[in-house]
Design a protein around this nucleic acid. Structure first.
Lengths: 186, 206
DNA sequence: GCTTTAAAAAGTAACCT
DNA sequence: AGGTTACTTTATAAAGC
C-alpha cells in the first residue's frame, strides 16, 4: 500500500517581490531579449527564464510576479537571474528583495477511483462544487489547511491555494481521512 | 427623514421594476425551452430570494434570471444543458455558469448534478424512439451508476450515449449524427461513452 | 469584474490526416 | 478512426480600466 502523500508533486509556485525601483518598461522591452510587452493588453512585461523554467511579470512599479517554477528554490533562482539581468542593464536592484510565496499548486494520487456524486454529498454540499456538465473535477474548499482541492474520478487530485510546502501534505492527509471516514475510498 | 423615505421608495420601486423585467425574461426563456409552469414558478421564487438578499448589485438581471431557470429546471427533474440555456439567453455561457454558482452558493440551494436519466425522455422523444428503447437507455444508465463509471462525465453525454446504445439494442434506426444533433454532444463523445456503457453492462462486447 | 502568467487533473470539442 | 491542440476548473500576485 503506497502512501498518497508520497505521490505529491509541486507543479507550480507563484511568488511576488519587488526591486524597490521604478522601471521604464518600454526601454526594458528593448534591452531584454525575449521580453514581451503589450501595454494595450496588459500593464506587465513578460520575461521567461529557461533554467529554471519560469515566467516573470515585471511592472512599472518595480514589483515582480514569478510563476511557473517547480519549487520554491527555483523561484529564488529564477528571480535571482532576473535581478542580475536588471543590474547588468544598470538598473539598481535592492540587495536581497523579499520574495513572498503566494500560491503553490500540487498534484497527488489517492490511489483509488472516487465516486464523486457520493463524495459531493459526503463532504457536504456547502463546501463542494461539482458540475460534471462543465468540469470533471469536484471542487472542495478545505478549512485546515486552507486550500482548494480538485478531486477527479481517477483518484488523482490537485491542491492549490496553499502558501506553504507542507500545506499539500496536510491537505492530502486530511482528505484521505475524510474520504475514509465516509467509507468512500477504494 | 424625507431623504430616507425617498430612498426606501426609490429602492422598492427599482426592485419592483427589476422583478418585473426578470419575471418577463424567465417566462420568455422557460417558454423557449419548453419548460412546465412549475419550473417557471420555482425560477421566479429563486429570483425573488436573490433580489431580497441583495444578490443583484454587481450582476445583470438577465444573468441572474438565466441562472434561476437553469437551477429551477434541474430542481424539478427536467434539466436543460448549459448550452441549451445559453441558446435562449442574452448572456454568454461563461457568465451564466459563473452567476449560477454564485446564486447557488449564496442562497444555499442544494442543487445536485442532473441525473443522466432525466435527459432520456426528451432525447428519445426527439428521436422518435420507442418506449422500450427509452427504458433500456435508463437501464444502461442505472447499471453505469452502480458500476461507478459516471464520475466526472457529462450527464448529457452519458444520456446521449445511452439513448444511442438503446436504439441499436432494440433495432431502431438512429445514427450518432442524429443523437449528436438532438443532444448537442459530439459524435466522438457519444462513441466513447457508448463503449463504456456496454463494457459496464457485460465486461465484454465493444 | 476583466486583462496576463504558470501548472495539474479529465472531459469535451474542433480540426486535420 | 485517430492524433493534436485547446478550452473548461481551482489559486495567486501585479496595475489599471
Amino acid at each position: 500500500m503506497t502512501n498518497p502523500a508520497d505521490s505529491i508533486e509541486i507543479q507550480n509556485v507563484v511568488a511576488s517581490t519587488g526591486i524597490g525601483q521604478e522601471l521604464d518598461l518600454e526601454a526594458l522591452a528593448e534591452d531584454l531579449p525575449g521580453a514581451d510587452f503589450n501595454p494595450d493588453n496588459f500593464p506587465g512585461l513578460v520575461y521567461r527564464t529557461q533554467e529554471p523554467k519560469a515566467a516573470a511579470l515585471i511592472f512599472r512599479s518595480g514589483k515582480i510576479v514569478c510563476t511557473g517554477a517547480k519549487s520554491i528554490d527555483d523561484v529564488h533562482e529564477a528571480l535571482g537571474i532576473i535581478f542580475e539581468k536588471l543590474r547588468g542593464l544598470q538598473i539598481p536592484v535592492e540587495e536581497d528583495p523579499e520574495i513572498t510565496v503566494q500560491n503553490i499548486v500540487s498534484s497527488a494520487d489517492l490511489g483509488h477511483n472516487l465516486n464523486l456524486n457520493a463524495l459531493a454529498i459526503g463532504l457536504g454540499l456547502e463546501d463542494v462544487e461539482y458540475e460534471p456538465e462543465q468540469f470533471p473535477g469536484l471542487v472542495y474548499r478545505m478549512d485546515e489547511p486552507e486550500v482548494v482541492i480538485l478531486l477527479f474520478g481517477s483518484g488523482k487530485i490537485v491542491i492549490t491555494g496553499g502558501k506553504r510546502t507542507d500545506d499539500a501534505e496536510g491537505a492530502v492527509e486530511e482528505i484521505v481521512e475524510r474520504i475514509e471516514g465516509l467509507g468512500l475510498l477504494g | 427623514r424625507l431623504r430616507k423615505w425617498n430612498e426606501r421608495f426609490r429602492t422598492r420601486d427599482s426592485k419592483e421594476r427589476n422583478l418585473k423585467q426578470a419575471l418577463g425574461e424567465i417566462d420568455r426563456m422557460a417558454s423557449a425551452l419548453g419548460l412546465p409552469d412549475n419550473v417557471r414558478e420555482t425560477a421566479s421564487v429563486i429570483y425573488r430570494r436573490a433580489l431580497d438578499e441583495d444578490l443583484l448589485p454587481g450582476r445583470s438581471i438577465e444573468g441572474v434570471s438565466t441562472s434561476c431557470v437553469y437551477a429551477a429546471a434541474r430542481m424539478a427533474g427536467v434539466p436543460r444543458s448549459l448550452d441549451e440555456i445559453a441558446d435562449v439567453s442574452r448572456v454568454e455561457k461563461a457568465e451564466i455558469a459563473r452567476t449560477y454558482r454564485y446564486v447557488v452558493r449564496e442562497l444555499k440551494l442544494e442543487v445536485k448534478p442532473a441525473d443522466p436519466e432525466q435527459y432520456v425522455p426528451r432525447f428519445a422523444s426527439d428521436l422518435e424512439l420507442s418506449e422500450e428503447s427509452e427504458m433500456r437507455a435508463k437501464g444502461l444508465l442505472k447499471n453505469a451508476k452502480e458500476k461507478g463509471v459516471h464520475s466526472g462525465k457529462s450527464p448529457v453525454g452519458l444520456a446521449a450515449a445511452a439513448v444511442y446504445a438503446a436504439a441499436l439494442l432494440t433495432n431502431e434506426k438512429t445514427t450518432q449524427a442524429a443523437v449528436s444533433e438532438v443532444a448537442d454532444i459530439s459524435e466522438v463523445t457519444i462513441r466513447n461513452r457508448y463503449h463504456e456503457l456496454l463494457e459496464a453492462e457485460d465486461g465484454l462486447v465493444a
